[in-house]
């Protein structure tokens, strides 16, 4: 039971990551490879604020979101003025740089040894300690993130985002400030990823750089693609499938060295099969990178 709840906490965390990346990649047409970097920024900022400065959990979360949104401008302001292809490269560079910082700034981040002893969350008097309580907390965060994504991808805002994704020239010709939309969406997507990072840090109570590598970004991209980019439920489904699938593999009884490799093979082949058979994802309507 505890184990199932543990998995559910991760489903919640990855729903936030996948839904926020889909806001950017699926709905706005901007692929970011730096999602793990912003996830890590949230985790580190929140951990440092609570461990070193004694800040409460929620302040840590908001601090992480703020730092992520702010640093997203470092990527978006210079690169989005150019064509979108440069944005992908810029996010890749940002991912590499952030990982190096997490891994090498020993005085601040603890380098490869990471930050231990991160306090468990306390939300206005509610001490979150049991697995079940964490599921509730992760659920609340996931619902809030989902609401933000839903409101920004429907109605006039979503209509404008989709227009920018489909035909930016047209969008500009009818008065839409495409650059402003893209910068805003990237900042929000990054801030939401950071909130997932805080959740992770305070759940595991220990972080190190290996959780925030480019592979993690690719895992989240896979969730979006497999679930269905640009759809409301796709990223949720993708997150659920890719979090629970490796866990079910555990029960087949393979030695862990084999299972780990098998997992990579399954991700890879799943992506290839999806690209060929259903490029728009399980429930999506829009094929990424078309």
């Amino acid at each position: 039971m505890e184990y199932a709840l543990h998995i559910l906490v991760f489903v919640g965390i990855y729903i936030i990551l996948a839904a926020s990346l889909d806001l950017l990649a699926g709905h706005t047409g901007l692929l970011s490879i730096a999602h793990a970097a912003f996830y890590g920024l949230g985790a580190y900022t929140s951990a440092l604020l609570t461990v070193k400065a004694g800040a409460p959990f929620l302040l840590g979360v908001l601090g992480g979101m703020f730092v992520a949104a702010l640093l997203s401008l470092l990527v978006s302001l210079p690169s989005l003025r150019l064509i979108d292809d440069y944005f992908v490269i810029a996010t890749f560079a940002f991912q590499m740089i952030l990982f190096s910082i997490f891994n090498n700034w020993n005085e601040l981040t603890g380098g490869p040894t990471g930050i231990p002893g991160i306090p468990e969350p306390s939300v206005i008097g509610w001490e979150v300690t049991s697995h079940l309580e964490f599921v509730v907390l992760a659920g609340v965060f996931a619902i809030l993130a989902f609401l933000v994504v839903w409101r920004l991808t429907t109605g006039p805002f979503g209509r404008a985002l989709h227009a920018i994704r489909e035909d930016e020239v047209l969008a500009k010709s009818i008065g839409k400030n495409a650059l402003r939309f893209k910068i805003t969406v990237f900042a929000i997507s990054s801030a939401l990823a950071a909130s997932a990072g805080s959740l992770y840090a305070h759940y595991i109570t220990y972080i190190d750089p290996t959780s925030f590598t480019v592979m993690e970004s690719i895992l989240v991209i896979s969730m979006v693609i497999i679930g269905g980019a640009g759809s409301l439920w796709g990223p949720l489904l993708g997150a659920f499938v890719l979090v629970t699938l490796p866990e079910t593999l555990r029960f087949i009884g393979l030695p862990s060295a084999v299972a780990a490799n098998l997992r990579q093979i399954i991700y890879g082949s799943l992506l290839v099969v999806m690209m060929m058979v259903r490029p728009q994802g399980l429930v999506g309507r829009y094929a990424l990178g078309r």
Partner: peptide, 24 residues
């Protein structure tokens, strides 16, 4: 240049000026 996948009405609504709902 049109957004092919969405409805005719949505294309026209998209073009309306100064939409409050397009602000964050």
């Amino acid at each position: 240049r049109l957004i092919q996948q969405v409805s005719v009405l949505d294309n026209v609504m998209l073009a309306r000026p100064n939409q409050r709902g397009e602000r964050l």
